[in-house]
Design a protein around this nucleic acid. Structure first.
Length: 516
RNA sequence: GCGGGAGUAGCUCAGUCGGUAGAGCAUCAGCCUUCCAAGCUGAGGGUCGCGGAUUCGAGUUCCGUCUCCCGCUCCA
């Protein structure tokens, strides 16, 4: 089956079985916003627990926080989000390609610079030893002409950017005769501004209200609490702060189901280190995070690193962990060496010293930061796509059969076990209820007595329940039940009294964490 | 935003030339009692995405609009 079809099936499976619903569906939906259903929320919580425990439980030098979504607006000036994420975009009508208007102009300016350098090189080889480069640069007419054009363009461009003058940006592109690299035409649309951040107002009256943003990333909540946590927790470098929380971004186009949403959830950990050691720690976290993914057993070949060539303004190294989704390898997690950029910015904007006194070195400095940042929703999609199987089976009588099964790792499964009376009479339902009453304190259980036993097994397969306990006529005689395994469909007979221990052992997170 | 595709029951879809809504599965109740979906009987569920136009009459034709899916740029 085509990958795209599988993805479509997966999306409707998520809806049909209560994992993910379109937001505001009865009102025609709200673009790129989704709700998690009764099973989705359980799976999501389990994913978050796996991450949280792998950070906070396993590392004595990592602690968690939960910072507010609203933050002082200056934080986003300091972080660069206010400026860096208001990209002016322009489309070429012929090639249908979209570009950042500022990048187009910058690339055009770079051409003038190239031209100048080429002239210098040419002259250098012509004059040899006697070449006076500064003199040449300041007198050669070709260079002066290029330089003049460059300067004029630069001045105009800088002014336009400063004033956020979108019409002027478009005019610069037209006046500079910049053509689309694909179509070669100059058939451009208007320049439009795309705001990454959601703005709202804080204050009960409109006058005097403070314009605040819904955070576009959770990281800044960690940075601005760096001193609080370091001091109150008596933390010493290296140490980390973990956080799980919602973030909001106005995506230009937001699609591919829950892969790219306007409201999404992040699991971020900022690890503060001594300057100079950051690249070692970067490698360390890259590998550890990859291990965390692979411990789920979805197949090592379905993961890869993608090292960034082009780095963000705050980073000196960056890599993504990509997973092979039905629609291709896509980024699930980013590991970034953020240098001391963020803390330094906050130090400057807030006037507070964002430093750590290192007793060994007997000096204070701004720590460097390694960030691991994973999207909960993307992780959710990874887990679901890795677990979704349409199986062809053969019945005992040889006729073909099929089933849809979510092979979720037992720890992540929303429902751990279903207790099913073989038939709906002769006291079997009562025994089943009693078993659930014992187990419901430990596990998410389900009871089902409707339809044939086979149908009930299939229903549990579809939501990914790893274990089905069946109460049959032998149960009242010797207090045993059968446990049926979702993946193999095989059954074992075990005493009712051992159920709790056996299941607890299988759904425990411990074994997973031990692999890290 | 631009281009392409699609909206009819919870799901998958049919619906002829314009004549007032249909199937399978699912759900619920009952029967049956059976260890791997699709046995029997019955029931509930639809302003056909929304608005307008044409018409005696629109799920069907026309116009507008909204939403979803796919591709292009950004990112978790």
């Amino acid at each position: 089956m085509a990958q795209e079809d599988i993805f479509k099936k997966l999306v409707s499976h998520c809806k049909e079985y209560g994992y993910v619903f379109q937001s505001s569906e009865i009102y025609d939906g709200l673009g790129a916003v989704y709700d998690y259903g009764q099973y989705g929320v359980e799976l999501k919580n389990n994913i978050k627990k796996y991450w949280w425990d792998s950070m906070v439980l396993l590392h004595e030098n990592i602690v968690g926080i939960d910072s507010a979504i609203f933050m002082h607006p200056t934080i986003w000036k300091a972080s660069g989000h206010v400026d860096a994420f208001n990209d002016p975009l322009i489309d070429n009508k012929d090639s249908k390609k979209r570009y950042r208007a500022d990048v187009l102009i910058e690339e055009h300016m770079a051409k003038y610079e190239d031209k100048i350098e080429k002239e210098v090189e040419k002259a250098r080889s012509r004059f040899g030893e006697s070449f006076d480069e500064p003199l040449f640069r300041s007198t050669n007419p070709k260079i002066l002409e290029a330089k003049e054009k460059y300067d004029a363009l630069h001045t105009r461009f800088a002014a336009a950017m400063q004033n956020s003058d979108l019409n002027e940006l478009r005019q610069i592109i037209i006046d500079s005769e910049i053509a689309c690299p694909i179509s070669g035409t100059r058939n451009w649309t208007e320049v439009r501004q795309f705001n990454l951040m959601f703005a709202t107002e804080m204050g009960s009256t409109s006058e005097g209200a403070l314009k605040v943003y819904l955070r576009p990333e959770t990281a800044q909540g960690i940075f601005v609490n760096f001193l609080n946590v370091q001091k109150t927790g008596r933390m010493r470098l290296p140490f980390g702060i973990a956080q799980i929380g919602k973030a909001f971004r106005n995506e230009i186009v937001a699609r591919q189901f829950i892969f790219r949403m306007r409201e999404f959830e992040q699991m971020e950990m900022q690890f503060f280190v001594q300057p100079g050691t950051e690249l070692d720690w970067f490698e360390h976290w890259k590998n550890l995070r990859m291990k965390w993914h692979q411990a789920l057993g979805f197949g090592e070949s379905n993961y890869r690193f993608h090292d960034h060539e082009k780095l963000a303004h705050y980073a000196n190294a960056a890599a993504d962990i990509e997973y092979r989704f039905p629609f291709g390898f896509k980024e699930v997690e980013g590991i970034h060496s953020r240098t001391d950029f963020d803390l330094k910015q906050h130090q400057e904007y807030s006037g507070k010293k964002m430093q750590f006194f290192d007793p060994e070195r007997n000096e204070s400095y701004v720590p460097y930061v390694i960030e691991t940042s994973i999207g909960v929703d993307r992780m959710f999609l990874q887990v679901v796509s890795a677990s979704y199987y349409e199986e062809d089976l053969t019945k005992e009588d040889g006729t073909p059969d099929s089933r849809v099964v979510l092979r979720l790792p037992a720890f992540l499964a929303p429902v751990k076990l279903a207790v099913l009376p073989l038939v709906k009479k002769d006291g079997l339902p009562e025994i089943s209820r009693k078993i659930i009453d014992e187990l419901k304190f430990d596990f998410n259980c389900q009871y089902d007595e409707k339809d044939s036993i086979g149908k009930r097994y299939r229903r549990q397969d579809a939501i990914g329940t790893p274990y089905c306990i069946t109460v049959d006529y032998q149960t009242p005689e010797d207090q045993t039940v059968t446990i049926r395994y979702r993946d193999s469909m095989e059954q074992e007979r075990i005493p009712v009294t051992r159920l709790r221990d056996i299941i607890a052992d299988k759904v425990n997170l411990r074994e997973l964490l031990r692999k890290l």
